[in-house]
Design a protein around this nucleic acid. Structure first.
Lengths: 264, 264
DNA sequence: CGTCTACTTGAAGTGAGTCAATAATGGTGG
DNA sequence: CCACCATTATTGACTCACTTCAAGTAGACG
């Protein structure tokens, strides 16, 4: 590991320290109990302080590896800024993208002490490293903090299942619409007040993620454009023009959230 | 809820009680730390006793609903015997099967106090009901038990991601092979010592789950048969004839580990 | 034993994949 | 700052695996 990128989070931070600036680890998810169905930051100030005590900050260059599949899992990671992905490596050098991670997400899943996937920085990344040994001790000591981790994992599972449903039943255009909708959910992807959004990842990443080829991604994107549903400003910036039709594509035809309308 | 199907688990069970017979709730998963990469029953005798104290047993007929999407989540369920599925209801009355659950699995995921999916018994089912309020109190009191729930959830997430990878990259025959392999993992699906296995769910359930139509499921299954990889004894019983070729399909051709072969 | 549902089989259509050829982008050094 | 090169994205033509539509058959259950 590149220790030059590693700096200790001060236990008793002064007003100018990095800790004071970014406030310690944070976790965003929809609560299990109560709440309005929206994602919130789950951790209390004291939770975040406890986590900061065992955490260190690390900066990762875009494209660099955060952890590697099969390696011994020493830490899990909490994103402060930037976007990461986890993928399964294929022997031909390509990868199957399993999920993307944004600010206030946790990544670094492991099984029997070893990382399952490879984690890579999509953009320059700032993360808290949470060493698993110390984290496990902390979670056993602080059951209510552990409950937040359980909630986050549940949220992650939900996202993965939603993804699987889309992979089964959506057309290329619907998948693309879902992906853009997904990006639009993350405020940090917003470029300016006009609703201009970034797409930080490559076509190959998107294609792997939504189960298409890069060619089909390109075609679907341009078809959404031609239909006036979105505007493609550059190949990595877009703006949603017709939110209603986008929603109809994503939720509508044969799928999930039509149901939500029924209920409401 | 149908209270006639509900019976209290005795706190201090005698040798003839149901508790003594089935030993209390149990959870099967690959441990996060240590272990050999195999799934184990995670709970200690005392964990199981604690859970039994708040649990009740319920029997569900095949095809009956265990819980419904959108309903207030009063309990989660731990399977003692039988198979269950969770699905998302679609507007046209069909359902998208999200996952199947077997002995020692947990189901009943919720968000903001409400079930996300609908849970249905695929076969006659015996479950422990774990009321969420009591369970939450217990987990906060017993952090090491909570850690096992966290591990199970992680295991579930892994399964969902594996499923998503298969949905992206596998052909119909590979998906079918993967499904049969998946069934073969569950010892309780074994009919006899000759390796005869049950398929308790309908073609429609399978099709939804692996992202095909019922017709394609049928065709893929019969093609595996014609190639001598499996034997279809009845439409809901099979036997694996050529384990090596099945493994090659599941891990191999066109997907993840084909590239492993190329590389090697 | 008849009816109903679930499964199988066949024929024809189509959406996304593949292969191949540009076109744009972005990073680098002159 | 611009020109160059390597990478990434787009576009087109063609193919094919799975879907769709349409019968037909077999199991399950009263």
């Amino acid at each position: 590991m590149q220790d030059r990128n590693l700096s200790r989070v001060p236990g008793l931070p002064g007003p100018d320290s990095q800790f004071a600036t970014i406030g310690g680890p944070a976790i965003q998810a929809i609560p299990l109990r109560g709440g309005d169905g929206e994602a919130h930051q789950l951790l209390s100030a004291s939770d975040r302080r406890d986590l900061a005590m065992i955490a260190s900050i690390r900066h990762i260059d875009a494209g660099a590896q955060l952890f590697e599949a099969g390696a011994r899992a020493q830490a899990i990671f909490n994103i402060v800024s930037g976007v990461a992905k986890v993928s399964e490596d294929l022997a031909d050098g390509r990868q199957a993208t399993v999920a993307f991670f944004f600010v206030n997400d946790l990544l670094g899943m492991f099984e029997s002490d070893h990382y399952i996937y490879t984690g890579t920085a999509v953009t320059p990344l700032t993360v808290y490293c949470l060493p698993v040994d110390a984290l496990e001790r902390l979670l056993l000591r602080e059951p209510s903090l552990q409950m937040h981790f359980l909630c986050k994992l549940s949220h992650e599972l939900r996202a993965s299942q939603r993804q699987a449903i889309a992979l089964r039943r959506y057309s290329a255009m619907q998948k693309m619409a879902l992906f853009l909708d997904f990006m639009a959910l993350h405020p940090e992807m917003q470029v300016d007040a006009t609703g201009l959004m970034k797409i930080p990842m490559s076509r190959a990443d998107i294609a792997d993620y939504i189960g298409l080829t890069t060619e089909s991604v390109s075609r679907a994107l341009h078809r959404l454009c031609n239909e006036g549903i979105v505007e493609l400003v550059t190949s990595h910036q877009f703006r949603i023009h017709d939110r209603a039709r986008l929603d109809r594509l994503v939720g509508g035809d044969g799928a999930v959230s039509l149901f939500r309308q029924k209920g409401g």
